[in-house]
Amino acid sequence: MAEIETYIVNPGTAEIDICARWRAETFSVLEASVEKERRTLNRFAADQARQVALIAKRGTVPVGTCLLVPSEIEPNHQVSPWLAGLFVAPEHRRHGAGAVLVRAIEAQARVRGFAQIFLYTISAAPFYQRLGWDLVEHTDWKGFGRTAFMSRTIKVMSP
């Protein structure tokens, strides 16, 4: 079985279409159609200074996506940057793709000079804790009820 590798998603690529479909179908909080999410991701991917979209592939097969974003949608905490939108296709779950994507986003944050990264999760706190993330507190984010606010300190790369 091929290793899982991550790639930066660039504007106008087939990967944008795949990620847009996954995001529109999975994240109801976005309230977006596939076309709207495609436009949003194209704009997002065009500016990679403080943000990045990644896609994970096993060989040539797309298996998941994740974002590093400067701000979360209506955050309860004014911090930056955020790991957001982690998604692994159901048929590829529990085979390491999520962990690969999280580590890749951490590396992207590190390259951009960030020493800490944050996320919200409703149900995956134990997953992130296994990857070294710390639970900061529980909050009620966007009316979703008990949501974990988590952080991870990352070692910044020396210039």
Results as ranks from 00 to 15, higher is better:
Q116Y: 06
P62R: 13
L54K: 09
A46N: 12
C19P: 00
F44M: 03
V9N: 05
G12K: 09
T13D: 07
R112N: 04
R23I: 08
T60R: 15
R112M: 07
K142F: 06
I122L: 14
T60K: 15
F114V: 04
V52A: 07
S33G: 09
R43G: 12
P62M: 12
K57V: 06
T121R: 02
A104F: 03
V111N: 11
S71F: 07
R146H: 10
M150K: 04
V100L: 08
Q108R: 13
R110S: 15
L131N: 05
T13L: 08
T65C: 12
R39I: 08
T26K: 08
S158Y: 09
H95Y: 11
L67S: 02
V136P: 00
H138N: 10
F114E: 06
G96T: 08
P159H: 13
N10T: 12
S158E: 14
R43T: 13
V69K: 14
A99Y: 05
H92R: 09
W141P: 02
I18T: 15
A107P: 02
V63T: 11
A89M: 10
K36F: 06
V9E: 03
F27P: 03
I73L: 14
T60C: 12
K57H: 06
A97L: 07
Y120I: 01
E37R: 10
P11R: 08
N42D: 15
Q116A: 11
F127K: 03
P126D: 02
L101D: 02
G145V: 06
A115Y: 13
F114I: 03
L135T: 06
F27H: 06
A99P: 03
M150R: 02
E31F: 09
F127M: 05
V69F: 01
F149A: 03
V100S: 07
A109T: 04
M150S: 05
